[in-house]
Design a protein around this nucleic acid. Structure first.
Length: 308
DNA sequence: TTCCAGGGGTAGA
DNA sequence: TCTACCCATGGA
């Protein structure tokens, strides 16, 4: 076992990032609400799965425990630290969003909570699969699909690593349909896995943040199974917040909160959040999280394991 | 039973 | 670009 510590930005709140959206409920993330510890099967510099346990012993510091025999190499340490930075978006600049929150009473608690970053998967591949599993199903059902896909990954200490594209491609459509119960999503994910395996698709430019807004959106939409709502959602995760991802959850929230029980049009929703400019997606997201799921004082009624 | 969830692909206009 | 229609699954 090896322990590492990391400093976090002043505007970073560990719980707020874990609870930023539903990823913490999806393997290979495992959240222990009692111990406030996020467990994740990551991969070291050579691709070997490693169980990481991340917690925040005090604000400003993360403690990362890697369950490995012997010592980690310097390369492994760099890789795992880099994964943690990616998963918790430690390098994301959100000061502008917090400034905006302080100018709006209903968002004033967001900076206090250290919210504004999202829990991320270490790879875009994993996030694409999870997002496709989340289309046209209740979230609790998506979590079950994702959990069954995760079980196709290599077992490690009672957990599973996220399966590689090669492993999914080898498992085949039949396995995704019959065993993982993905239904019509199965061929989309097989096609994605196969194109990554044979190199006809390269997610590198997305991973490295090389694409600007419109090109990034185009890249997501090019993946079969990813439509406008999912592409916009992935954009938000990738740090482009000037566009809402309008799905059924958005309608459900704004209908009661802003339109007196009437279901608004998409254009009306756009208009409502337009004043928040480049941060509009975060302004919506964290308003909804706080009102619907976090509770007024922080995280009193965060659901576990599946929010409806 | 019927509806529909954190939609998307496709064909046809 | 917009609109029907279809697509698995499973909870409500």
């Amino acid at each position: 076992m090896t322990k590492m510590t990391m400093r976090t930005p002043e505007d970073f709140g560990f719980l707020a990032v874990v609870y930023s959206h539903g990823w913490y409920q999806c393997p290979p993330f495992h959240w222990d609400a009692e111990e406030k510890t996020l467990t994740r099967v990551a991969r070291d510099a050579t691709g070997q799965p490693v169980v990481l346990r991340i917690r925040e012993p005090r604000r400003g510091t993360l403690e990362i425990q890697a369950d490995v025999e012997g010592k980690l190499t310097d390369a492994d340490r760099r890789k795992l630290r880099s994964d943690v930075r990616q998963m918790l978006q430690l390098d994301r600049e959100i000061a502008g969003f917090h400034d905006l929150c302080r100018r709006h009473e209903h968002l004033a608690a967001i900076p206090e909570l250290g919210a504004g970053r999202f829990l991320r998967c270490p790879s875009v591949w994993e996030e694409l699969v999870k997002s496709i599993c989340g289309t046209n199903v209740q979230w609790s059902q998506a979590v079950r699909m994702i959990s069954r896909v995760a079980e196709l990954g290599e077992p490690v200490e009672g957990y599973h690593a996220w399966p590689t594209p090669e492993r999914i491609a080898e498992a085949g459509e039949e396995t995704l349909r019959e065993q993982c119960r993905l239904g019509y999503r199965a061929p989309y994910i097989i096609e994605l896995a196969a194109s990554l395996r044979d190199g006809s698709l390269d997610l590198g430019p997305i991973e490295r943040g090389e694409l600007e807004g419109p090109d990034l959106r185009k890249a997501f939409l090019a993946v079969k199974g990813v439509g406008p709502a999912t592409a916009d959602y992935l954009m938000i995760l990738n740090g482009v917040a000037d566009r809402l991802s309008i799905d059924s959850a958005v309608y459900a929230f704004v209908k009661d909160r802003h339109f007196g029980g009437r279901r608004p049009s998409a254009a009306e929703i756009e208009q409502l959040y337009e004043p928040y400019g480049e941060w509009r997606a975060l302004a919506y997201w964290f308003e909804a999280m706080q009102e619907y799921w976090w509770g007024p004082a922080g995280f009193d009624f965060v659901p576990d394991p599946g929010r409806e």
